[in-house]
Design a protein around this nucleic acid. Sequence first.
DNA 1: TAGGCCATCTGGTCCT
DNA 2: AGGACCAGATGGCCTA
Length: 226
Amino acid sequence: MVQVKTEYREEEEVLSPASVCSGSSSSHLSSQTCSSDDEQLLVPAASILPVQEQDQSAAKKPRRSRARATGKNGEVVMVVKKTRRVKANNRERNRMHHLNSALDSLREVLPAFPEDAKLTKIETLRFAHNYIWALSETLRLADQLQEAPSFSATPLFIQDSHSPASPSASSWSCTSSPSSSCDSMSPSSPASSSSDILDYWQSADHHLHINHSQHHHLVPGTTAYM
DNA sequence: TAGGCCATCTGGTCCT
DNA sequence: AGGACCAGATGGCCTA
């Protein structure tokens, strides 16, 4: 479903040489035609060299004309700006890689999907949201059943809405998170009893492991079901 | 071919 | 000042 195009590796802030992409002075370099690694290595080198050359020329010719100095300073400013931009790009790239790594970690702890059914970013976040909700509800129901054998089937979302300690299920909405009106499997759906929770999990388990080819139909609040 | 998803670049803003 | 964070823009890849 979702293609994974890039194998991440921990990137270093170190600027190193070489790449065919550096020649591009345009603001947008294709991530495919010019790999991030190559670009990272290349652009910085190209940016730094002029600085070194400038320093050497300045040492040899301290009495250069004002106009010439201004021009050189202009070049230096440009080089400094470009170097900062390249470093910022590298940081941003690493930041996004870390973010993606965190998302991968999150995917690993979610109910298993086949390799070829990797959840998208938004699906991962929404599914995790609902997964946590369902787990917490399961625990809460278990506690209720232990404490009150005569537990009545009061709608969970109503109880939650009066519980300041736990995230209110009634606060779930279509815009920020899954809701009953958006998806029948969402947390705020009328899961009115422990059997409903069990149904939820049985259904989820069934679809996740048996009908996983259409997993997105069963992941509450996914993009396709907003 | 359109739409979805993604990686990357970029400039602005906020924080330390 | 420099780094982190963010959102918009851009272009590539893939699928229906």
